Computed example of a mutant assay.
Amino acid sequence: MPNRGGYAIGLLRLVLLALAATVLAVPTATFASQASHNGAAGMPPELAEAVSAYRQATMRSDIAALSDLVAGDYILVNSDSSLQAKQSYLDDFRLPGFRIDRYVVEESAQAVWGDTALVRGLLHLAWTQDGAQHRRVLRIAHVWTRREGRWQIAYTQLTRVPEP
């Protein structure tokens, strides 16, 4: 996978990966014409459980749990347009000196089509890396698929929102 910017990009990827799961922890609305703000409205219970487990595993940097929840053919498109496959994604959780300071998610929503689901939001994030403070605003989208009876995250897209 491409790695533009070396160590700094790796650290940014870690921040973005850790925050990818945070979008899944906030109240969601369906994409359908009747928007709802009552939690996981319209989300199958098994998907809601997988989303919750993914969020918890991400916040704990639980690589074993993440490995089970991330599809083998997982692709992450980072905000710098670089790509990561599953193993590279999991390896980022081993980077030292990283801590999420705070984040806010707005415009969160979901859509479920049979065995495929999309969860998205606008992420206002702040983190500390080796003592330095960083901030970003990102649009984030996760695609989940149900394969062999279980939900796994198959794709994540991160888009950096330009600063005003």
Rank of each mutant, 00 (worst) to 15 (best):
N38H: 14
N38I: 13
A40S: 15
A40L: 12
A41T: 14
M43E: 12
M43Q: 04
P44S: 01
P45R: 06
P45S: 07
E46Y: 05
E46W: 03
L47P: 01
A48P: 03
A50D: 08
V51K: 04
V51C: 06
A53K: 03
A53E: 09
A53S: 11
Y54L: 10
R55W: 13
T58Q: 15
M59D: 14
M59C: 08
R60D: 11
D62A: 09
A64C: 05
A64S: 10
A64Y: 06
A65Y: 03
A65P: 08
L66D: 01
L66W: 07
S67Y: 02
D68P: 05
D68N: 12
L69N: 02
V70E: 04
V70M: 11
D73T: 03
D73R: 08
Y74E: 09
Y74V: 09
L76T: 12
V77P: 06
N78K: 04
N78S: 15
N78M: 15
S79Q: 05
D80W: 03
D80I: 02
S81E: 14
S81V: 06
L83W: 01
L83K: 13
L83R: 09
K86S: 06
K86W: 05
Q87V: 08
Q87G: 03
S88F: 00
S88C: 10
S88I: 08
D91I: 07
D91Y: 06
D91L: 06
D92N: 07
L95M: 10
L95T: 07
P96C: 03
P96R: 06
P96W: 01
G97H: 09
I100F: 07
I100M: 12
D101L: 10
R102Q: 13
R102Y: 12
R102A: 11
Y103V: 00
Y103H: 10
Y103E: 10
Y103I: 01
V104G: 14
V105F: 07
V105S: 04
V105L: 15
E106D: 10
E107G: 08
A109E: 00
Q110W: 08
V112E: 00
V112L: 00
W113F: 08
G114T: 02
D115S: 13
D115T: 09
A117V: 01
A117W: 01
A117G: 02
L118F: 01
L118D: 03
R120T: 13
R120C: 13
G121D: 02
L122F: 07
L122S: 07
L122Q: 04
